[in-house]
Design a protein around this nucleic acid. Structure first.
Lengths: 202, 202
DNA sequence: GGTAAAACTGCACTTGCGGTACGGAAATGA
DNA sequence: TCATTTCCGTACCGCAAGTGCAGTTTTACC
């Protein structure tokens, strides 16, 4: 890795942690550069303004989430050939992962940006929407495979059900933060899992 | 209503709308006073600083939500004497109300503050936590009444299940905003309703 | 080991916003 | 009428974002 990339990712690491902890506007460039130990000019060498830092962070965050889900549900598919049971395993792995975090979940960047909308960040809005649509497509595919094999016990829209995974994630993180209770998020994922189970299984 | 209260609530109305639309920090005092048509001195006569405006807004918001839930599930209890069916009716009324909004849901102030944590707002954190605990207590009571009559089809923690209502609300709002689709929130509430149905009813 | 490009530093400046201070004026209500 | 409430006007401070640019060091590569 070249030196510039190193500094750039160090800026991003420190900025992301601060933003998740305090919010975007509450995080000043000055505090970031102090922790990274560079000057303001150095910062603006890597990012043309604060907004472009925000976009870079969001892209990286989305990619990482994507990779995480790939790994999680890929592993689950290895553990069971049936789509429903594989999905149920995936959800449990997901809950366990959220439960094993050292502290409360640091928060979702997409949610932070969605609650800090500005006029100048159309790109951020589009990126967020696209990633949410990608999550929807991912889970919709899984659910359709399941629904083809297992009839549902209640009439549901599979698209809405696909969104329920993201919604549970976002809601669970928010409630974990509000209640200051780390267990809320994994508990909510397990309730979602319980619903999937009751909906498709006997 | 006295003149001062009028101005005060006008400030709060305009501030709340702007904050929900753009975020707390992105909303400047200067733009608020311009729309209210007062001066900066006028603003600081009513609120000693921006943070105390935030607190006032949060208190009002929490009270309104509380009143809304009272009305919603109170009405539902009038419509059916059985606790489970009353709750299912309440959830449907809730979903309908969210569906009948003229635009996308403006957002939840509690969530906004939870994603804009700062050092100086311990009071905001406490208020948010208290209101979340109040929501939990409200729904926990209902669910225990239901559980006493109907055995659950899956093993679940009733406290987590009570939190699921708030979590679904927060997650649904966030996903509605991210996807820019008004229907996501009511759809998520209906899925929650479907789960409650499958969980307690055969 | 020289050299060009990359990766910064230093500094001076502008703008916008939150917030303070305080005197005074106008509206309101008993 | 008269005190209290509800503001207005103005001048000011400090902080952070962001600009501009010249200069310096560091790195990668032949």
């Amino acid at each position: 890795m070249r030196k510039g990339e190193q500094t750039r990712s160090k800026i991003m690491d420190i900025a992301e942690a601060a933003i998740l902890a305090k919010g975007f506007d509450a995080t000043s460039i000055e505090e970031i550069i102090e922790e990274v130990d560079i000057t303001k000019s150095g910062f603006f060498y890597h990012f043309k303004d604060k907004n472009s830092l925000a976009i870079a962070l969001l892209r990286r965050y989305i990619d990482r989430e994507e990779a995480l889900f790939d790994k999680l549900f890929g592993r689950a598919a290895e553990l069971h050939e049936d789509p429903l049971h594989a999905f149920l395993i995936g959800l449990r792995l997901f809950a366990e992962m959220m439960s094993d975090l050292p502290t409360i979940h640091p928060g979702c960047l997409v949610a932070i940006y969605c609650y800090n909308e500005r006029l100048y960040n159309n790109e951020i809005r589009s990126l967020s929407q696209e990633s949410a649509l990608a999550w929807r497509a991912r889970f919709q595919e899984i659910l359709e495979e399941i629904a083809a094999k297992y009839p549902t016990k209640d009439e549901v829209d599979l698209v809405a059900l696909a969104d329920m995974i993201s919604s549970t994630f976002e809601g669970g993180i928010a409630m974990s933060k509000i209640l200051r209770d780390q267990n809320v998020l994994p508990d909510q994922i397990l309730l979602l899992r319980s619903y999937i189970k009751l909906l498709f299984l006997d």
